[in-house]
Amino acid sequence: MIQRAQRRDPAAMRRLIDLHKERLFAFVWRMMRSHHDAEEVCQETFLRAFAALDTFDTRYRFSTWLFTIAYRLTLNFLRRKKPLLADIDFATVAAEGQGAEERCANTEEAQRLKTLVWQAVDRLTPPQRAAVLLFYRQQMGCIDIAEVLDIPVATVKSHLHRARARLKGILEPQLLREYSADRILRGFAG
């Protein structure tokens, strides 16, 4: 498909866009918190990828390459923008599958927990936030994340470690104040 897209085959290009656009958009949106800006970055990401498709080495994963471009564009965009706003509306939640994720999504106290967690994520630095999103949302390993962020693997691990420490530091006092959230934690811990 990549090779067909390199020959500017519209069907192949369309397929590539459709395959990756939602995951890419979700990542960029989580980084930027603006639908309009995220869509702009996504569009620019694809355009740059298509423009440079001839140089793409097919031994690598196309998605990793896309995320690399998107991350750099996002960073550029964030540098030009004001600090991120934290007024996020978590109005609706749809549980995904069974198990822990589902337990985290369905109750009112889980909604509160979600809000707290995402507010905490928003307070991470952009590289920490990107590492966390790629690790948890995109299920990427440290090697792939290192490629996307263009940093050594050890730095990725450091980002993840610091991000978790920071999340814990932000979340713990808030969760301890809330009995219901503490109950959730005890449920998981048990």
């Binding site: 978590f90 939640v93 979600k114 967690v117 995402w118 966390v132 948890y136 979340l171």
Partner: peptide, 17 residues
């Protein structure tokens, strides 16, 4: 557990437009 919960919340996120 706190870190696991945070990870689950992030992984299960379906609020992104």
């Amino acid at each position: 557990a706190l870190l696991e919960v945070a990870g689950h919340v992030i992984a299960a996120d379906s609020d992104a437009p």
